[in-house]
Simulated scan of single mutants.
Amino acid sequence: MSVQQKSAPTLRRHVVPTELGRCTVRVQQGAPGRWGVSGTPEVYLHGAAGSRTTFQALLSGAPTSGEPANDRVLIDLPGWGESTNGARLERFSLVAMARAVTGVLKALGYQRWNLVGHSMGGFLALHMAAAWPEQTASVAAISATTFSVSDACRAPLPGLYRFPAFTGMLLAMRTMAALGPAGTALVRTVSATPLMGPLMSPFFADPAAIPPVEIRELGYDARPASFSAAARAAAHYDFGQWLGIRCPVLAIRGDSDVFTPESDLARLAVIVPHARLATIPRCGHFAHIEQPDHVQRLLGELWSW
């Protein structure tokens, strides 16, 4: 009996100019069609402490990881990953970021999309669904940092008592951002040491089960100035816009998620009553890293609605 090895997926790299700076994108071709025009793509939007690489575990374990039904689009949002040089953070807002993402997708030839967003990326995906209801086919928001994060960004000192995990990280990132490039260098230096494990442990239900390389990559991808810009944007967001969301919405959180409390999903269900809510057991803020198979099953159910 022979075992056929799956080849690594081919990802084409694109660099697209946006109002927030040049945006680097990777596209994996789906089974039908040609590059950039294969059905309705899956678009992956990372969080404020990550990059497109945070979705590697999720996609490598997908049943169709070798040849997905539709294109997969992985974006390093302006200010993160390979999209940091020349990023115009002074112009950052959720509205501007959403325009940048839709501009990238249209430049690649897409007119409609399924959005999968983690943390800030989930927040961004929900905004896009409200602002572009005809183009957004579905939203999967994985541990979207929304209402509680917005409250903490608006009032950090009370947030230290009510929402300590996020607010502590926010204040640390603001401090590092004030140091400029030296702050980013310090974060990256710490990410390469054993100290990074304990610092990242609140993100996970079982930190010991997370490969050290994953922890290092999360630390390396931290961008203090970009994180601070995202927090400023979240502080004054009008959640009433989400009343216009019409597409299927799946909102996921881990049962040990310290950044996305259960109350955030309950508030989302009030604004978007057709949203489907799911809490994954034995899981923290990075469900797509800790429980990728479970997340894949939920995504499959969403896309079959």
Rank of each mutant, 00 (worst) to 15 (best):
G300V: 07
D264A: 03
L58T: 02
P9S: 10
H285C: 10
S228V: 01
S138F: 00
P78C: 04
A222S: 11
L299R: 04
V73M: 01
T260G: 08
E82G: 03
P281E: 11
A130F: 06
P164E: 10
L58V: 07
P202M: 11
A152K: 05
R216M: 12
G47A: 08
N70W: 01
L89W: 08
E301V: 09
F239E: 11
G79D: 02
V249R: 02
I142M: 12
G109Q: 07
M120K: 01
G122Y: 00
A100I: 02
A205D: 14
P212F: 10
Q111P: 00
A231R: 04
G81T: 08
T167A: 06
C247A: 13
L171Q: 06
S228H: 07
V270H: 07
A233K: 03
D264L: 02
A31E: 14
S263T: 13
P281W: 04
A208C: 08
H288K: 12
L115R: 05
F55Q: 00
F239S: 10
D206F: 11
Y161Q: 11
F55Y: 14
P292Q: 06
Q135G: 12
M1N: 09
G81W: 01
D221Q: 15
P17T: 05
A222W: 00
Q296T: 10
R246D: 08
L298P: 02
F259V: 02
P68A: 09
A129F: 04
G197K: 14
M196G: 03
H274R: 14
G284V: 04
L20G: 06
L299G: 00
I280E: 04
L126R: 02
M173I: 07
M196L: 14
G61E: 14
G47N: 05
V16D: 08
G197C: 03
E290C: 09
T260P: 01
S38E: 10
